[in-house]
Design a protein around this nucleic acid. Sequence first.
DNA 1: AGCCATAAGCTAACGGCCGTAAGTCTAGGA
DNA 2: TCCTAGACTTACGGCCGTTAGCTTATGGCT
Lengths: 212, 212
Amino acid sequence: MVTGVTNTEPRRRNRRGEGGKLRDEIIAAAVALLDEGGDERAVTLRSVARKAGIAAPSIYAHFADQPSIMLAVVQQEMDRLAVALREADENAGSDAEKRLFAVCNAYLDLAQAHPQRYRIMFGGLWTPSVDDTSISDADLESLGAEALTLLADVLRACVEAGIAHGSDDLYGDAVALWLGLHGLAHQRAVVRKMPGPADVAERLIKALAHLK
Amino acid sequence: MVTGVTNTEPRRRNRRGEGGKLRDEIIAAAVALLDEGGDERAVTLRSVARKAGIAAPSIYAHFADQPSIMLAVVQQEMDRLAVALREADENAGSDAEKRLFAVCNAYLDLAQAHPQRYRIMFGGLWTPSVDDTSISDADLESLGAEALTLLADVLRACVEAGIAHGSDDLYGDAVALWLGLHGLAHQRAVVRKMPGPADVAERLIKALAHLK
DNA sequence: AGCCATAAGCTAACGGCCGTAAGTCTAGGA
DNA sequence: TCCTAGACTTACGGCCGTTAGCTTATGGCT
């Protein structure tokens, strides 16, 4: 596609007090660049500015530097993911197995729907200057505290429903399950054609949830 | 560490007929840059040349362009990995469970020993210009054909030894097991401090191999 | 021993994109 | 009216990939 050139329309300036809107437009522009199939290298200050229809230095009013944009993107997508997982769980009713597959499939679907976003979120990189406050640790624990406890809850429900073998460490099992999902999601996001049978996801989930 | 500056010693030129040696030195230099903790962006034509003690254009005698260097690195490391897995299997004796853990741990250890190399191998990216002949598909099948059949063999041995529940698709199980290993290896390579218990690897392997 | 063709590698330079700093314009609202 | 939020223009320096042409040491040959 290579949409380098863009909007000749000059973009109306925001009203007074609404300057903060540009911040969201910048994030959206960065996400759009990723969704066009470009990797993180395609998200430069200047390309983001072009995409958003603004001048490059205008970004500095809202972000300290380029990595900060990526950080904001990751945080936003992390939130989206957490929300999607909770939604999937709530819409799955009370059947434990349905809940399990709903949550896991929601995770896999979101990753497959936006491969580049997923790569940014969990692929490392994008953190050249933010070495100390590296988000990978902090925000993975934030998602870890949110999504992993959700996974652990679902696993517990499965055990209590008698459809899964229990364990002395459900949180550890949740981590293992997540790692399996991550392996599949990441590989799908990277190679676009996975080797192996079509039901790998089901196999992974069943095995890691210790379904009977 | 930031070792930007380097060897003032001017590097003796190769003898006649041995010009090809430089090719290996270039690959080694690229790997060294990765091992220093830099991500793939640190592997530029010029930085590789500096590391190898040569002038940047000298690379063109051995590589068509910059992505070709990364491609060579990936292929070399893929081979290393395949060899390491076979070695681990052969040194594990004939006990099926020992073989299983030996192979899986060899995979995880190699990934943890060289996180950046692992990220390059399976993290996608590094292929900006090689879109059609993208190695991710071709060489993952090469490793997929090598390492995955090895995993399937070990799984079969476990089933035949009566320590694992069988399945109608051992290759599919091998893929699932590899995906779990990959998830753990990749996550370790990226965040440097994993959440969850210390025995996650064992849990993953046991669950995905369907050990009794 | 000396010659000289050639492999092996170097220097110089172009154009391009990048991040960022400094200063300037302009329209909305009190 | 006129202040100021919300942008823009211009510019500097740096690293990059790549091309074109030059230098130098090596080793087979006479």
